[in-house]
Structures are given as structure tokens and as C-alpha cells.
Simulated scan of single mutants.
Amino acid sequence: MNTITTDMPEPGTLLRSYGLEAKYEFLRALRTPMFAVPTLLFPALFYVLFGIVLSGSRGGVAAAQYLLATYGVFGVIGASLFGFGVSVAIERENGYLELKRALPMPPGAYLLAKMAMAVLFSAIISVMLAVLAAGLAKVSLAPWQWLALFLVNLTGALPFCAIGLYVGSLVGGSGAPAVVNLLHLPMAFLSGLWMPLHLLSPIFAKLAPLWPAWHLGQLALKVVGRDSGASAAMHVAVLLGLTVVFFLLARRRLSR
């Protein structure tokens, strides 16, 4: 009797491998206070301060709605950039990526696990902000708006995962936090995530489309009816294009 053998793993085993890699990557990040604490708490603390405590004299519920959308994007970008940019740089520098390549793990499991981690952190941030907005700021949105904001934040993590991956492929572990901060904080400010751009010099509004954070912020603001009026398709196309470009650039760097 002939026996047919194959090296291909069973589908159930393959999915379990991906699931375990994602699970332990999420737990690793959650148990890293220097990443988990600021990533989860800063968007909520900023929202409480500026969207709830100070919004009464600066727009009330309208300001709370605006900042609900933009601080959600701010949190998602932080989780994605730091989750990839810093961790990949450290792991690459310490030889962890070489170890991962030598292990019998499914193709792409390392990157998919990190993307899943960033998306899960984005989900937690989105839920925290929604609870604060509805419970304390008295923000009232239709059910589809709450769901749309949640989906924008989750899918919006992907382009910044790609950007973070490219940053992590360029710099060392000791320099990665500084580089990511220099990218994250100015981009958030210049994209109108901390305050509407019309409160600043007109030059900032003209330059805003240069920043990927602006495009994601506009998608979130479109959900609550406070965007600048540009086409959602344009924002999606820009973010999708950036995801592909930076992923390919990072793949080229990491394959050397």
C-alpha cells in the first residue's frame, strides 16, 4: 500500500499557530508597562482633560465629539507606531528576528501577531473613549456611528503598523523610541488631532494632507460630521497606498 506524505500542516494546526503567536504577542505587550500604560491611558487622560473638563467653555458636546474622533486616532497611531517601530527595532538588534526565522512557525506569523496586537490595543482604546464620551461628556451618536468609529480605528491601525515596521527596520533599539516620538507627536498636532486646524495658522491646514494621520483623522471626523469635506475614498486610497508602500519598503530592508 502506498502512503502519501505531505509537509503541509493541517488547517487547524496552522490557525492555532497563528492564534497562539498573536495571543502571546498581545500578552507580552500588555505585560510591558512602558508600552501598555501610556498607550492605553494617555488617550483617555487627554480626553478627560480636554474633551470633558475643559470642553464646557470651548464648544461643549461639539468639542467632545470632535476629540472623541481625533483622540481615538491618536491612540491608534501610538499603539501601532510604538508596537512595531520600537519592538521590531529592539528585536532586530538583539537577533530575535533571526531566531524567529529559524523556528518552524507559519509564514508571516510574526508580523500578523504584531498587527493583531496593535488592533487589539486599538479596540481597547476605542471602547475606553466611547465609555468616557457617552458616560461623562454626554456624547450621543447613532449606533452606526459608534460602530463606524470603532471600525475606522481598527482598520486605521494598519497603515501605521506598516510605517512603524519600516521605522523599526531602519533604526536601532536605543534610538527607536526617540524616532517614533518625533514622528508621532508632531504629526498628531499638525494633523488636527489635538485641536481643529482652523484655530491655527492657515498654512497648517494647507500642509495637513501631507500627513497620514490627517487622512485617518478625517475619516473618523466624517463619522461624527465634523470633517473638512474631502472625499472618504481619497482618504482611504492614500492610507491604503501608504500601507502597501511602507510594508514593501520594510520587507526589502528586513530581507537583507
Score class of each variant (00 low, 15 high):
Met8Thr: 15
Leu81Tyr: 12
Thr13His: 11
Glu25Asp: 02
Leu54Phe: 14
Leu41Glu: 07
Ile163Ala: 07
Pro33Trp: 11
Gly12His: 12
Ala113Val: 13
Lys100Cys: 06
Pro143Thr: 04
Leu68Phe: 14
Tyr71Glu: 14
Leu30Cys: 04
Asn153Ala: 03
Ala123Phe: 15
Phe84Ser: 07
Pro209Leu: 05
Ala162Asn: 01
Ala137Asp: 11
Val61Gln: 12
Pro209Trp: 09
Lys100Gly: 03
Gly78Ile: 15
Ala188Gln: 02
Pro106Ser: 11
Phe26Pro: 00
Ala102Met: 13
Ala69Val: 15
Ile125Glu: 10
Val171Cys: 06
Ala44Arg: 00
Ala133Arg: 02
Val53Ile: 15
His184Pro: 00
Val76Leu: 09
Thr243Ser: 11
Met117Cys: 10
Ser87Gln: 11
Gly95Lys: 11
Asn2Gln: 10
Leu249Gly: 02
Ala148Gln: 06
Ile52Arg: 09
Ala130Trp: 14
Leu158Glu: 02
Phe160Pro: 00
Ala63Glu: 14
Gly19Thr: 08
Ile203Asn: 03
Pro177Asp: 04
Asn181Arg: 00
Leu193Glu: 07
Tyr96Cys: 10
Ala89Gly: 08
Ile163Val: 13
Tyr71Cys: 08
Leu120Ile: 13
Val139Ser: 06
Gly168Phe: 10
Leu158Ser: 01
Thr70Glu: 09
Ser231Val: 06
Phe150Ala: 02
His184Glu: 00
